Simulated assay, not measured.
Amino acid sequence: MSQFFAGGAAIVLALLLWGMGRRPRKTLLRSTDAAAVAALNRAQVELVQQAQAELAPVGLDGEPWSPPSTTAERLTLETELRRLISGDPEQRLEAVRLAALWGHSAGLPVLRRGLRDPDPRIVEAAAAAMERHRGAPGRRSVQLARPPRNVARMR
């Protein structure tokens, strides 16, 4: 009988220690009203949208710039870039910036002319814009299969 009491005492002691060592459960939210959280989220979203609007590229008319979507708009932009690159340094800088924003290969003549400009600001902006166009676009060869073992004999 003493072994039975000793075993029972050991089990009771183990359960007691295990129960005391457990961490208390996390309490649920005291308030289920999420209006304050939603208001905070809306305020943060507005701050992000304002920051994005300030960083958005601006075109010649002061409105946010978007690339041309039609052929007529593209031709108009090319004509405007050619006119601006022939103007004073501020206009030439604006032409290089617009060509960089556009990123189309039709703007390359403006960027090349900007690389030869006497104003260092224009040269720097044109060089930075040319980074997108470096390399041959369609000449990257992808070898799908390995060549035959006797390639030297094929020539």
Rank of each mutant, 00 (worst) to 15 (best):
L16H: 04
L17V: 13
G19I: 14
G19Y: 15
M20T: 11
M20Q: 14
M20E: 12
R22H: 12
R22L: 10
R23M: 13
R23A: 15
R25P: 05
R25M: 06
K26I: 15
K26Q: 15
R30A: 14
R30H: 14
R30Y: 12
R30E: 14
T32L: 10
D33T: 09
A36I: 06
A38G: 02
A38Q: 13
A39K: 12
L40R: 15
N41K: 15
N41S: 13
R42E: 14
V45F: 14
E46Q: 13
L47W: 07
Q49S: 05
Q49V: 07
Q50M: 10
Q50Y: 08
Q50S: 07
Q52T: 07
Q52F: 14
A53R: 07
E54H: 03
L55P: 01
A56P: 01
A56C: 00
A56S: 03
P57W: 11
P57F: 10
V58Q: 09
G59F: 11
L60E: 12
D61N: 12
D61F: 09
G62H: 10
G62V: 07
G62M: 05
E63Y: 08
P64N: 06
P64W: 08
W65I: 04
S66R: 15
S66D: 06
P68R: 09
P68M: 09
S69I: 11
T71S: 11
A72Q: 08
E73P: 05
E73Y: 10
L75S: 12
T76W: 13
L77F: 01
T79R: 15
T79Q: 14
E80F: 02
E80D: 05
L81Q: 02
I85M: 08
S86C: 02
S86E: 04
G87R: 07
G87P: 02
D88C: 05
D88N: 13
D88Y: 13
P89I: 07
Q91V: 08
R92F: 09
R92V: 05
L93F: 05
A95N: 02
V96L: 02
R97F: 06
R97E: 07
R97Y: 10
L98Q: 05
L98P: 00
A99P: 01
G103A: 06
H104L: 00
A106M: 12
G107V: 03
L108W: 06
L108K: 08
P109I: 07
P109R: 08
V110R: 01
V110W: 03
L111Q: 00
L111G: 00
L111P: 00
R112T: 06
R112I: 06
R113Y: 02
G114Y: 05
L115D: 00
D117V: 03
P118Y: 11
P118A: 12
P120R: 09
P120L: 11
R121I: 00
R121E: 00
V123H: 11
V123A: 10
V123T: 14
V123P: 06
E124G: 01
A125W: 00
A126S: 10
A126Q: 02
A127H: 13
A127L: 08
A127P: 03
A128H: 09
A128W: 06
A129D: 00
A129I: 01
M130A: 05
R132A: 12
H133R: 07
R134F: 04
R134I: 03
R134W: 04
G135M: 01
G135F: 03
G135L: 01
G138K: 14
R139G: 12
R139Q: 12
R139A: 09
R140G: 04
Q143L: 08
A145H: 08
A145Q: 10
A145P: 01
R146A: 14
R146F: 11
P147W: 15
